[in-house]
Simulated assay, not measured.
Amino acid sequence: MAATRDKTALIVIDVQNDFCPGGALAVGEGDAVVPVANRLMAAYPLSVLTQDWHPADHASFAANHDGAAPFSTTEMPYGTQVLWPTHCVQESAGAAFHSDLETGRAKMVVRKGFRPEIDSYSAFFENDRETPTGLDGYLRDLGIGHLVMLGLATDFCVHDSVVDGLALGYRVTLVEDGCRGIDLDGSLDAALADMREKGAVFAISDAL
Protein backbone atom coordinates (compact mmCIF):
# COMPACT_ATOMS: atom_id res chain seq x y z
CA MET A 1 0.00 0.00 0.00
CA ALA A 2 1.40 3.40 -1.03
CA ALA A 3 2.17 5.86 1.75
CA THR A 4 -0.13 8.85 2.06
CA ARG A 5 1.77 11.89 0.80
CA ASP A 6 1.06 14.23 3.69
CA LYS A 7 4.53 14.64 5.16
CA THR A 8 7.08 17.45 4.73
CA ALA A 9 10.77 17.28 3.79
CA LEU A 10 13.37 20.04 3.91
CA ILE A 11 15.62 20.19 0.83
CA VAL A 12 18.89 22.10 1.35
CA ILE A 13 20.49 22.82 -2.02
CA ASP A 14 24.24 23.04 -2.67
CA VAL A 15 25.45 24.84 0.48
CA GLN A 16 29.05 24.15 -0.50
CA ASN A 17 32.29 26.05 -0.07
CA ASP A 18 32.66 26.98 -3.74
CA PHE A 19 29.28 28.77 -3.64
CA CYS A 20 30.13 30.72 -0.49
CA PRO A 21 32.40 33.78 -0.10
CA GLY A 22 35.95 32.91 -1.16
CA GLY A 23 34.78 30.01 -3.32
CA ALA A 24 35.37 29.45 -7.01
CA LEU A 25 31.78 30.37 -7.91
CA ALA A 26 30.88 32.46 -4.89
CA VAL A 27 27.31 33.67 -4.49
CA GLY A 28 27.04 37.00 -2.68
CA GLU A 29 26.31 36.36 1.02
CA GLY A 30 26.02 32.65 0.23
CA ASP A 31 27.12 31.72 3.75
CA ALA A 32 24.15 33.65 5.19
CA VAL A 33 21.91 30.69 4.35
CA VAL A 34 23.80 28.36 6.72
CA PRO A 35 22.15 29.41 10.02
CA VAL A 36 18.75 29.35 8.34
CA ALA A 37 19.39 25.83 7.07
CA ASN A 38 20.60 24.65 10.49
CA ARG A 39 17.59 26.08 12.27
CA LEU A 40 15.15 24.41 9.88
CA MET A 41 17.01 21.09 9.85
CA ALA A 42 16.55 21.01 13.62
CA ALA A 43 12.82 21.63 13.13
CA TYR A 44 12.05 19.14 10.35
CA PRO A 45 12.55 15.40 10.98
CA LEU A 46 13.44 14.71 7.35
CA SER A 47 16.05 16.82 5.58
CA VAL A 48 17.97 16.14 2.37
CA LEU A 49 21.15 17.82 1.15
CA THR A 50 22.12 18.18 -2.49
CA GLN A 51 25.76 18.44 -3.53
CA ASP A 52 27.33 19.48 -6.82
CA TRP A 53 29.92 16.77 -7.54
CA HIS A 54 31.71 17.43 -10.84
CA PRO A 55 34.64 15.60 -12.44
CA ALA A 56 37.49 17.93 -13.43
CA ASP A 57 36.73 17.40 -17.13
CA HIS A 58 33.08 18.43 -16.82
CA ALA A 59 31.59 19.86 -20.00
CA SER A 60 30.04 22.81 -18.15
CA PHE A 61 33.42 24.25 -17.18
CA ALA A 62 34.65 27.13 -19.35
CA ALA A 63 38.21 25.86 -18.84
CA ASN A 64 37.33 22.75 -20.82
CA HIS A 65 36.33 24.76 -23.93
CA ASP A 66 39.16 26.43 -25.84
CA GLY A 67 38.89 30.21 -25.68
CA ALA A 68 35.60 30.22 -23.75
CA ALA A 69 35.08 32.82 -21.04
CA PRO A 70 33.36 31.97 -17.77
CA PHE A 71 29.64 32.81 -17.85
CA SER A 72 29.50 32.61 -21.64
CA THR A 73 27.19 29.99 -23.15
CA THR A 74 27.43 27.07 -25.53
CA GLU A 75 24.99 24.65 -27.07
CA MET A 76 24.84 21.14 -25.65
CA PRO A 77 22.67 18.27 -26.96
CA TYR A 78 20.17 19.16 -24.23
CA GLY A 79 20.13 22.92 -24.90
CA THR A 80 21.95 26.11 -23.96
CA GLN A 81 24.53 25.67 -21.23
CA VAL A 82 26.24 28.39 -19.17
CA LEU A 83 29.98 27.74 -19.00
CA TRP A 84 30.97 28.11 -15.38
CA PRO A 85 34.25 28.66 -13.60
CA THR A 86 35.63 25.30 -12.48
CA HIS A 87 33.85 24.51 -9.21
CA CYS A 88 32.78 21.71 -6.85
CA VAL A 89 35.28 19.24 -8.27
CA GLN A 90 34.90 15.82 -6.69
CA GLU A 91 36.86 15.37 -3.44
CA SER A 92 38.02 19.01 -3.45
CA ALA A 93 37.66 21.41 -0.53
CA GLY A 94 35.38 23.54 -2.71
CA ALA A 95 32.94 20.67 -3.16
CA ALA A 96 32.66 20.11 0.60
CA PHE A 97 29.67 21.41 2.49
CA HIS A 98 30.18 24.65 4.41
CA SER A 99 31.91 23.75 7.65
CA ASP A 100 29.14 25.30 9.78
CA LEU A 101 26.34 23.36 8.05
CA GLU A 102 25.04 20.70 10.44
CA THR A 103 25.21 17.90 7.90
CA GLY A 104 24.72 15.20 10.53
CA ARG A 105 21.03 16.11 10.69
CA ALA A 106 20.46 15.15 7.04
CA LYS A 107 18.91 11.80 6.19
CA MET A 108 20.19 11.72 2.59
CA VAL A 109 22.75 13.43 0.34
CA VAL A 110 21.96 13.67 -3.39
CA ARG A 111 25.06 14.16 -5.52
CA LYS A 112 24.49 15.67 -8.95
CA GLY A 113 26.49 16.77 -11.97
CA PHE A 114 28.88 13.80 -11.78
CA ARG A 115 28.37 12.78 -15.41
CA PRO A 116 31.04 14.64 -17.45
CA GLU A 117 28.81 15.32 -20.45
CA ILE A 118 25.80 16.90 -18.72
CA ASP A 119 25.21 19.51 -16.05
CA SER A 120 22.65 19.12 -13.28
CA TYR A 121 20.98 22.03 -11.51
CA SER A 122 17.84 20.37 -10.20
CA ALA A 123 17.65 18.09 -7.19
CA PHE A 124 15.40 15.84 -9.30
CA PHE A 125 16.77 15.74 -12.85
CA GLU A 126 19.91 16.46 -14.79
CA ASN A 127 19.74 19.23 -17.38
CA ASP A 128 18.44 16.95 -20.10
CA ARG A 129 15.21 16.97 -18.01
CA GLU A 130 15.09 13.17 -18.34
CA THR A 131 17.86 11.62 -16.23
CA PRO A 132 16.59 11.33 -12.64
CA THR A 133 18.69 11.73 -9.50
CA GLY A 134 16.54 9.26 -7.55
CA LEU A 135 15.25 11.87 -5.10
CA ASP A 136 11.64 11.68 -6.28
CA GLY A 137 11.41 7.95 -5.64
CA TYR A 138 12.95 8.34 -2.18
CA LEU A 139 10.49 11.05 -1.18
CA ARG A 140 7.46 9.24 -2.58
CA ASP A 141 8.34 6.04 -0.72
CA LEU A 142 8.34 8.07 2.51
CA GLY A 143 4.98 9.67 1.80
CA ILE A 144 6.36 13.17 1.29
CA GLY A 145 3.93 15.60 -0.33
CA HIS A 146 5.33 18.99 0.75
CA LEU A 147 8.85 20.30 0.15
CA VAL A 148 10.46 23.22 1.95
CA MET A 149 13.44 24.38 -0.12
CA LEU A 150 16.40 26.69 0.40
CA GLY A 151 20.02 27.03 -0.66
CA LEU A 152 22.23 28.19 -3.52
CA ALA A 153 21.77 29.63 -5.98
CA THR A 154 18.21 30.95 -6.18
CA ASP A 155 18.21 31.49 -9.94
CA PHE A 156 19.78 28.19 -10.98
CA CYS A 157 19.81 25.09 -8.78
CA VAL A 158 17.12 26.30 -6.39
CA HIS A 159 14.87 27.48 -9.21
CA ASP A 160 15.14 24.25 -11.18
CA SER A 161 14.58 22.14 -8.06
CA VAL A 162 11.47 24.12 -7.14
CA VAL A 163 10.02 23.99 -10.65
CA ASP A 164 10.68 20.27 -11.00
CA GLY A 165 9.22 19.60 -7.57
CA LEU A 166 6.03 21.39 -8.57
CA ALA A 167 5.86 19.54 -11.90
CA LEU A 168 6.19 16.24 -10.04
CA GLY A 169 3.16 17.09 -7.93
CA TYR A 170 4.71 18.30 -4.68
CA ARG A 171 3.60 21.38 -2.82
CA VAL A 172 6.68 23.59 -2.56
CA THR A 173 7.55 26.35 -0.12
CA LEU A 174 10.60 28.49 -0.91
CA VAL A 175 12.41 29.90 2.14
CA GLU A 176 13.22 33.41 0.95
CA ASP A 177 15.81 34.25 3.61
CA GLY A 178 17.45 30.86 3.10
CA CYS A 179 18.46 31.56 -0.52
CA ARG A 180 20.89 33.79 -2.36
CA GLY A 181 21.21 34.30 -6.13
CA ILE A 182 23.88 34.79 -8.77
CA ASP A 183 21.80 37.12 -11.01
CA LEU A 184 23.21 36.82 -14.53
CA ASP A 185 21.53 39.44 -16.73
CA GLY A 186 18.33 39.55 -14.69
CA SER A 187 18.17 35.82 -13.99
CA LEU A 188 17.24 36.31 -10.33
CA ASP A 189 14.05 38.31 -10.91
CA ALA A 190 13.09 35.98 -13.76
CA ALA A 191 13.57 32.92 -11.55
CA LEU A 192 11.52 34.37 -8.69
CA ALA A 193 8.69 35.30 -11.03
CA ASP A 194 8.72 31.87 -12.67
CA MET A 195 8.58 30.02 -9.34
CA ARG A 196 5.65 32.16 -8.17
CA GLU A 197 3.80 31.70 -11.46
CA LYS A 198 4.21 27.93 -11.31
CA GLY A 199 2.76 27.75 -7.81
CA ALA A 200 5.57 27.96 -5.25
CA VAL A 201 4.67 29.56 -1.91
CA PHE A 202 7.25 32.02 -0.59
CA ALA A 203 7.88 32.22 3.16
CA ILE A 204 10.35 33.56 5.71
CA SER A 205 12.02 30.95 7.92
CA ASP A 206 10.67 32.46 11.15
CA ALA A 207 7.13 31.76 9.90
CA LEU A 208 7.78 28.05 9.34
Rank of each mutant, 00 (worst) to 15 (best):
L10W: 06
I11K: 02
D18K: 02
D31Y: 02
V33E: 00
P35V: 04
P45M: 12
L46D: 01
V48S: 02
D52M: 02
D52S: 06
D57Q: 10
A59R: 13
A59T: 15
F61L: 09
A62Y: 13
H65L: 10
D66A: 15
A68H: 09
A68Y: 07
P70M: 11
V82R: 14
P85R: 06
T86G: 07
T86W: 09
H87V: 01
C88W: 00
E91H: 13
A93R: 14
A95K: 05
A96G: 04
F97E: 02
L101C: 00
E102W: 04
V110N: 06
P116S: 12
I118G: 06
S120A: 14
S122N: 08
F124Q: 06
F125G: 06
E130K: 15
E130F: 14
T133N: 02
G134L: 10
D136Q: 09
R140M: 07
D141Y: 10
M149Y: 06
L150M: 13
L150P: 05
D155C: 12
D155T: 08
D155H: 11
H159A: 14
V163Y: 08
D164T: 10
A167T: 12
L168K: 10
G169N: 07
T173P: 11
D177N: 10
G178W: 00
C179A: 11
R180Q: 13
S187C: 10
S187H: 10
A193H: 13
R196T: 00
A200M: 12
F202C: 12
A203P: 12
L208C: 12
